[in-house]
């Protein structure tokens, strides 16, 4: 095998088909970048889910004075008796692991901490605006319904909130983003395949003299097809590398910004980015190689 000869043929082929090659590279790069982004979103979601899995709890808010919530209208704040009854009832339930009482003052302290970046918002809020609540931690988050049944109807209870519901809305949004990224990636992948098909047809036509002579003097199929195949592989590799760079940029500019909205560590690790980048490169090369090989069999009679 004369590697020099094959690589000089590849170089000539790439230069001759420069515009088509660029089109293939760009399409493959966008496709692979979106594919990688989809995977990164999945990693990000599982990072967050993992963090919350053992922290998710149920909040049972109690009525406060002059409460505007429909359940509390026309009555005063929850009484001592009501509060103790509720606590006892919750603690009796086998599904409940822990019940914590949070007073208005405690809630306010937490609120001040969470919104310390918006002082005006904090100024507008007084401790008595925040209701006291019970934080219930379950052994299994699926048993939320049972707690709701026990707590919701009781006097003095204004509302029962499952924090998982709030999170799920957020995760659903991320899931949709991931789905669309993957969908566009698939479309781009198909476009790349069609473009490669076209490029190979042009390349085979451009080099029909050479391939005709190669056939005639008894060059093996491998020798005849290798330059074309390598053209496709190189284009795929270039596209994959660009996609990898885009993934790194996406991590720095988008995913790392998510951290600002969370009090705990949800940052994507560089390991995850590297893994997805490698996956994008390999997939790009693979798609281009297979597409080249299949179209060559059509346009390069051996």
């Amino acid at each position: 095998m004369r590697t020099n000869f094959i690589f000089s043929e590849v170089w000539i082929g790439l230069r001759r088909n420069l515009t088509m090659t660029i089109a293939v590279i760009v399409t493959a790069a966008i496709g692979m970048a979106l594919f990688g982004t989809g995977l990164l979103i999945r990693n990000q979601v599982s990072n967050m889910k993992g963090y919350w899995a053992d922290k998710i709890s149920i909040s049972i808010y109690l009525c406060k004075k002059n409460d505007a919530m429909p359940r509390c209208k026309g009555r005063g704040a929850a009484s001592e008796q009501e509060r103790n009854d509720l606590k006892a009832a919750l603690e009796k339930m086998p599904q409940v692991e822990e019940v914590k009482h949070e007073t208005s003052d405690q809630a306010y302290a937490l609120f001040k901490e969470q919104f310390k970046n918006s002082p005006t918002f904090v100024e507008m809020t007084k401790p008595e605006d925040l209701p006291e609540s019970f934080r219930v931690k379950l052994r299994d988050q699926k048993d939320f319904k049972a707690v709701q049944e026990v707590a919701a109807g009781r006097p003095g209870v204004s509302s029962v909130q499952n924090q998982e519901d709030v999170l799920n809305t957020f995760f659903e949004l991320l899931g949709k983003l991931q789905g669309s990224a993957i969908a566009i990636a698939i479309i781009q992948g198909l476009a790349a395949i069609l473009l490669i098909g076209n490029t190979m047809r042009l390349a085979a036509y451009n080099r029909r003299r050479e391939t005709g002579i190669m056939r005639l003097v008894g060059a093996s199929n491998l020798y005849i097809q290798m330059p074309f195949l390598l053209e496709g592989v190189l284009a795929g590799l270039a596209g994959g590398l660009i996609a990898a760079v885009m993934l790194v940029i996406a991590k720095i500019t988008v995913f790392d910004q998510l951290q600002n909205y969370f009090a705990f560590a949800v940052r994507l690790s560089w390991g995850a980015v590297a893994w997805n980048a490698v996956l994008a490169i390999v997939l790009g090369v693979l798609i281009c190689a297979v597409a080249s090989f299949v179209t060559l069999r059509r346009y390069l009679r051996v």
Binding site: R2, G212, I213
Partner: peptide, 27 residues
């Protein structure tokens, strides 16, 4: 070996390279 009416030479290669091509492509 094959010879044709229309020669079938590669226009971008010189005489030596045209002949050498037949050997290069069979390794």
């Amino acid at each position: 070996g094959c010879v044709f009416q229309d020669f079938r030479l590669l226009p971008n290669k010189n005489v030596y390279e045209n002949v050498a091509f037949a050997l290069e492509v069979i390794g």
